[in-house]
């Protein structure tokens, strides 16, 4: 009886999560409400069943997520029997940092700074993230247990050797480990697993007529009345869906008729652009945008 690739991936992810719980003092799971987070949470339920996952969920909120994401977030945490911690960077809140007026500062303050604040505030020494190696070049290079110094920085040139499944979770006070249990999953694996396991995801992944405007080549959804319309600009109803979910003013939609999981997978497989293409964040700083952000403490 040979395991299929999905069975092998599932067993590996569960093994990783159990190692963290066995070795870390205060683990937490970063939960961004996207499809990868949904799979990661599902795997956590499997890893510790019949106990609930023995760590809280942490949502580093920017206040600019899609409404549908907030709804699923609260439900998913409740269903899993886990505590949900929500952190919003008070300084960003105070200054009213938003993606329309502040550009890259929006990501820096809400996400990178917000994440660091939350980890420091609760003293978490290990944080699960749903990143995959097939997403981006610097992620393809990152260890599953990714060591961070006391200021949360990643040193890509000096990563710990990581052999077999022997993860080194040791660290000094103040240092931490980011753990990526989905490292070896691909976008197709995630979708197929969601399909096979019947995992609940945000409806925005499925196509539906939604109010949109076109900006700088991105198709943006007008999710609430904070969206500043240019003079003469009118939201247009289009049949759209999202391949990836973030802050709604920064996340480009695709025009699509795919309304079921097989249709989504079909569309994904026949498409000619990568999933992060709809995200503005990767294009900063030339070829090394993500690597630089990770060195500064971004997930």
């Amino acid at each position: 009886m040979s395991l299929t690739h999905l069975e092998r991936l599932e067993a590996e992810s569960i093994h990783i999560m159990r190692e963290v719980v066995a070795e870390a003092e205060r683990p937490v799971m970063l939960y961004s409400v996207g499809k990868d987070s949904a799979v990661m949470l599902h795997l956590a339920k499997k890893a510790f069943y019949p106990a609930p996952p023995p760590f809280p969920l942490l949502h580093v909120d920017t206040t600019w997520k899609f409404q549908a994401m907030y709804a699923l977030r609260d439900k998913a945490a409740k269903d899993a029997g886990m505590d949900l911690l929500v952190h919003q960077n008070p300084e960003a809140l105070d200054k009213g940092i938003n993606p329309f007026d502040h550009g890259p500062l929006h990501t820096d303050m809400w996400k990178t700074e917000g994440l660091k604040q939350a980890l420091d505030k609760y003293g978490f020494d290990a944080a699960f993230g749903g990143a995959r190696r097939d997403e981006e070049k610097s992620r393809a290079k990152e260890r599953i247990f990714s060591f961070r110094n006391a200021s949360h920085g990643w040193d890509p040139k000096n990563q710990r050797p990581e052999l077999w499944k022997l993860y080194n979770a040791r660290k000094a006070k103040g240092e931490s480990i980011r753990v990526f249990p989905l490292s070896n999953w691909t976008e197709l694996d995630i979708w197929q697993y969601i399909h096979l396991e019947g995992i609940e995801i945000v409806p925005l992944y499925f196509s539906q007529p939604r109010p949109t405007v076109e900006r700088d080549g991105l198709l943006l959804m007008v999710d609430d009345d904070r969206f500043p319309l240019e003079p003469g600009e009118e939201p247009v109803m289009r049949s759209i869906r999202f391949r990836t979910l973030g802050c709604y003013p920064l996340t480009g939609a695709v025009e699509s008729e795919a309304a079921t999981l097989p249709e989504i997978i079909q569309e994904m497989l026949l498409t000619t652009t990568s999933e992060r293409q709809g995200r503005a964040i990767d294009k900063d700083a030339g070829g090394a945008g993500m690597e630089k952000k990770k060195q500064e403490g971004y997930f």
Binding site: R133, D134, E136, K137, S138, R139, A140, K141, P156, K157, Q159, S183, N184, T186, G287, A288, E291, K292
Partner: peptide, 22 residues
């Protein structure tokens, strides 16, 4: 350049760390 993902690798034209591809 597809697999040499770190800035230092691209600058120096060498592979420093292992990259995983699918």
């Amino acid at each position: 350049l597809l697999v040499d993902g770190l800035a230092a690798e691209r600058e120096q034209g060498i592979t420093i760390d292992v990259a995983y591809r699918f």
